[in-house]
């Protein structure tokens, strides 16, 4: 919350009346007190908030991971690390394709932008499909949602992340369709950037989950 000096500067430094002229000359096309885009700021605030959401779910999982289970296998016993590594890698690479999509659209290279958007969505879908496969395998091996503490915590955390990925895919596909219809000119590249922020955030959450939930032994 210590934003005072930072944001006070643009509004304060500009002499009265000249404010908007000065903005036009020095900053991107955002006529706001900070010169920053409302939408982007909102997305960053939202992501800051999401940290506490995922933090709570991850902490719950970590807490229950160390507790004895009363029925069924502990979740650590049935991990398929090689499989999860591959799907983690897929999600990680979708961040690359996302940033390439943004870079293409900023250059007004719409055909490539669409390719990368679609690739990103497909990589995301691959990840979700992998998660569905993983869940069914785990259930077959005796860990259902209600079997024990760890099952509940694991499925809730990773499922919640999966829902986030799915929503991201929906947004990417919407962008793809918008681009096809010519409603995504490079002047609106920021829309792609903001969806990208969300997408990368989902990716970094998985980076944390992959390490804390899968790789570090209980």
């Amino acid at each position: 919350m210590s934003v005072s000096e930072q944001t006070a500067a643009p509004a304060g430094a500009v002499p009265e009346g000249a404010a908007h002229v000065a903005h036009d000359a020095t900053t991107p096309a955002h006529h706001t007190s900070t010169g920053l885009s409302n939408e982007k700021l909102a997305m960053w605030l939202f992501l800051g908030s999401e940290c506490l959401l995922f933090g709570g779910l991850i902490s719950t999982f970590l807490l229950y991971r160390t507790r004895e289970v009363t029925a069924g296998p502990p979740v650590g016993d049935i991990y398929d690390i090689p499989f999860t590594s591959v799907s983690s890698f897929v999600l990680l690479m979708s961040s690359l394709t996302m940033v390439l999509a943004l870079s293409s659209i900023q250059r007004a290279d719409h055909r490539r932008a669409r390719t990368w958007l679609l690739t990103t969505a497909l990589l995301g879908a691959t990840f979700v499909a992998g998660q569905v496969y993983e869940f069914t395998t785990f259930v077959r091996e005796g860990l259902g949602y209600t079997t024990n503490l760890q099952g509940s915590a694991f499925y809730t955390l990773t499922g919640f992340h999966g829902v986030h990925v799915t929503l991201g895919i929906l947004m990417l596909l919407s962008l793809f369709v918008m681009s096809l219809r010519g409603r995504l000119p490079s002047g609106r590249a920021e829309t792609v950037e903001i969806v990208g922020l969300y997408w990368h955030f989902v990716d970094i959450v998985w980076i944390i989950i992959f390490t804390l939930v899968y790789l570090i032994p209980a």
């Binding site: 934003v3 908007h20 007190s33 700021l41």
Partner: peptide, 14 residues
Amino acid sequence: ITTCLNMRAPGMTL
């Protein structure tokens, strides 16, 4: 929050 940070009139420092 976005409003407070971004929508202030000219000269309305924090």
